[in-house]
Nucleic acid binder design. Structure first.
Lengths: 277, 277
DNA sequence: TCTCGAATAGAATAAATATTCCATTCCGTC
DNA sequence: GACGGAATGGAATATTTATTCTATTCGAGA
């Protein structure tokens, strides 16, 4: 057995060693390393059997991993996590408070503000979302022969994420970014649906595109931040999501949650019930 | 033995029951109650023997205490504390599977899942963030004459959002997307910093670019999801953020909160203390 | 101070959990 | 395609941990 003359005795040492050995690991042991790297926190309260199962390996393999890390076995490795846990238990509220108090405009304080804002935004989304309107949006998108996605400036990350998610699910999608200043509005054909994302002050290009699509008779699904947004005039199916701001900035936590849920719901619907054309 | 028809199933219920029975307890059992009241957090990671010793009683006495609390024994009591802890990293894969099998995959349910995942991710970010590493990242970026942003596929929305935020604050930025399949690595000059975002399985292009930058001697700040990401070999300042997943999908709530906080902190620093060149 | 039921300590046992061992598989090399 | 070493799975074993049991102590009330 490996002498544990070099057993990591702190989280930093643990991390260092993990990086060190990660390169030269065979398949199963690499699975252990990856799982541990992504779920360090579970170690304190789990048994080898549980961790091994989650990592998709045998308990014995997991123990060999612990030994490669320099410990005599799992128990010894777990100890450093339990010790650490005992020290930093304070719950979320306390933790946020701690981050906040680390100096007025320190990065950690700012992060705490944005995390709080994200949490609050998600909460208000839960209260405000109209389940029926959401269902209608899913219907419309699931029935589309092609989904056009439009969103610029602050909405662009959302548009890009939606494009990514649809792509992963093999759903035909066109992302209307402004690359090469090409206007691809003529790719909007009958039976297509436009998924537009825009927040006040509404981006002219996005509204223009939506207006064009509406005039051609295409259905529009909008993710926006107010009920009186310009999309309303276009008979769009509107999903309202408002983000709490921190100073002049807003994160996109709630919007992204809504976006991914919408995409996955559409994907699920289409796999059980493919669109006509 | 006490039937556990009334075993507390939440921390609140536990607390309530503890207060209820505390009054009418004989000496040793009272010691248990007092110790537990003062060290509730230790239960998740301790053995009966440890707790009993700390409370100054025999293990058997401690178990009798657990039974008075309404549990069948120590293990059952410990479970609610471990579950509570694990709640921050729930196994959404199985939950979504349950939803599927129960036929309830309505869009609203899915949205609820993603909102919950977002909330949990933000909480775990609060617990995991290393304030000092974050401060180092801000230092590095605030001192950069140019910030290069790299992030593809799932990380691309994050990269786009960062580019948007920096742009709004007049901070010189280049977003290394793959438009036109142009490789713009030669725009990375001395004094520049690369801000790379990538999650497992790590995108080759992003890692390549980071490797190149590292070889040229540029500082790298990474937003990634595991301690053993490839960025560690590049001596990057690494910010770890792990998102809870729903089935095969992950939202980006925590990542986006971190990204915007980072950007705003850099902006604030630069306005009070502009970079040399 | 005696009696009796409740409370307790500690040993004995049961159960869960970690670890080792070995037969089999996998993979690179000749 | 045969060989050999590394890696793996899974059963067997060892260890730790939880729980039960029983003899003893304690303390209130007569």
């Amino acid at each position: 057995m490996k002498k544990n003359d070099k057993a990591p005795d702190s989280l930093e040492a643990f991390q260092k060693r993990l990086v060190e050995i990660s390169d030269s690991l065979p398949k199963r042991l690499r699975q252990c390393a990856d799982y541990v790297a992504a779920n360090t926190d579970k170690i304190a309260i789990s048994t080898v059997a549980e961790l091994a199962a989650n990592a998709g390996v045998q308990p014995s393999a997991f123990i060999r991993f612990c030994q490669l890390m320099g410990f005599s076995g799992y128990s010894e490795m777990q100890r450093i996590f339990r010790d650490d846990y005992a020290q930093r238990w304070p719950d979320y509220a306390t933790r946020i408070a701690n981050l906040r108090s680390s100096g007025d405009d320190s990065p950690a304080t700012l992060l705490a503000e944005f995390m709080e804002a994200g949490r609050a935004s998600i909460e208000s989304l839960a209260n405000e979302i109209d389940a029926e309107e959401l269902a209608r949006a899913v219907d419309a998108l699931a029935g589309a022969s092609m989904i056009h996605i439009a969103g610029l400036s602050r909405a662009f990350p959302v548009a890009a994420y939606l494009a990514y998610a649809f792509e992963k699910m093999d759903i035909p999608t066109i992302l209307h970014d402004k690359t090469g200043n090409l206007d691809r509005r003529h790719s909007i054909l009958p039976g297509n649906v436009l998924l537009a994302i825009s927040f006040a002050p509404y981006t002219r290009e996005t509204i223009d595109l939506a207006t064009y699509a509406h005039e051609k008779g295409n259905r529009i699904v909008a993710i926006t931040d107010a009920l009186n947004s310009p999309f309303h005039r276009l008979e769009a199916i509107s999903l309202k999501v408002s983000e709490v701001d921190v100073g002049a900035f807003r994160a996109l936590s709630a919007t992204l949650s809504l976006a991914i849920a919408l995409a996955v719901a559409v994907g699920a619907r289409r796999s059980s019930d493919p669109p006509g054309k």
